[in-house]
Amino acid sequence: MESFSLPLLGGLLIGLTTAAYLLLTGKVVGISGILAQALFSRDRLLPFLFVIGLILGGSAYGIFVEPSQPFPEMRSPILLIISGLLVGYGTRLGSGCTSGHGVCGISRLSPRSLVATAIFMTTAIITVLLTK
């Protein structure tokens, strides 16, 4: 498969999955919200399957499509825990995560999501420029 078609395929799969989840649950896709549903809600099956699908899909892509890419070095467990807590706090503070705002919020022309996504992207660009 040509390299330019992989991002297109990924975008199509994200769009289809997002639409299917909305049709099946009546809720928009936001990974932090889905993870919270999988852990804490009474109706856990679909959110749990969604999270498992993310893990298996990403793993399958790494194994079958990008097998030549080296696995990232191991990070400190303490650093991973602190990072996870900061991300969780940020998603609550921002009323959603990058997937919820960037994929679903922008498609609904939500002003809050447009601002949040602009801030995510600006912060990401600055971080890359400062660390590379």
Rank of each mutant, 00 (worst) to 15 (best):
F71A: 10
P47V: 11
V28C: 10
G58E: 06
E66Q: 13
L54W: 02
K27T: 06
M74I: 09
S68L: 09
V28Q: 04
I34Q: 01
L39A: 07
G33A: 07
L56G: 07
Y61E: 02
K27G: 01
P47S: 07
P47F: 04
F50P: 01
G26C: 14
M74D: 06
G30F: 02
P72H: 00
T25H: 06
L56C: 11
L54P: 05
S68E: 04
P47Y: 05
P72D: 01
I31H: 03
D43M: 14
L56Q: 03
M74V: 10
R44L: 06
A60F: 13
I52C: 10
P70D: 05
G58C: 06
Y61I: 02
G26W: 10
G53R: 05
L39M: 11
I55G: 06
I63L: 13
A38M: 01
Q37T: 08
G62L: 06
E73N: 09
Y61N: 01
I31L: 14
I52A: 12
T25I: 10
Y61W: 06
A38Q: 00
F40I: 09
V51E: 05
L54R: 05
I52R: 04
I55L: 11
P70R: 01
G62R: 07
R44N: 09
I55R: 05
G33L: 12
G58W: 01
D43K: 15
L49Y: 08
P47M: 07
L54C: 09
I63N: 08
V51G: 04
R42H: 15
F64P: 04
R75N: 08
S68D: 04
F64N: 02
T25F: 07
S41D: 10
V51L: 11
L54H: 03
G57K: 08
G58N: 10
L35D: 00
L49W: 08
F64L: 11
S68M: 08
L39K: 00
K27P: 02
I55F: 12
V28Y: 12
I34K: 05
G33C: 10
F50N: 04
L45P: 14
V65I: 14
F71S: 08
R42V: 13
L46K: 12
L56A: 15
V65Q: 03
L54I: 13
A38R: 00
G53D: 05
L35W: 12
E66M: 06
G26Y: 08
F64I: 00
A60T: 10
L39Y: 12
L54K: 06
L49R: 07
L45D: 12
R75M: 00
F48T: 15
A38G: 00
S32N: 12
G33H: 13
V29A: 15
G57D: 08
G62N: 11
I55A: 12
I55H: 04
E73Y: 00
F48P: 05
V65A: 13
F50I: 10
P72G: 01
D43V: 14
V29M: 15
G26E: 15
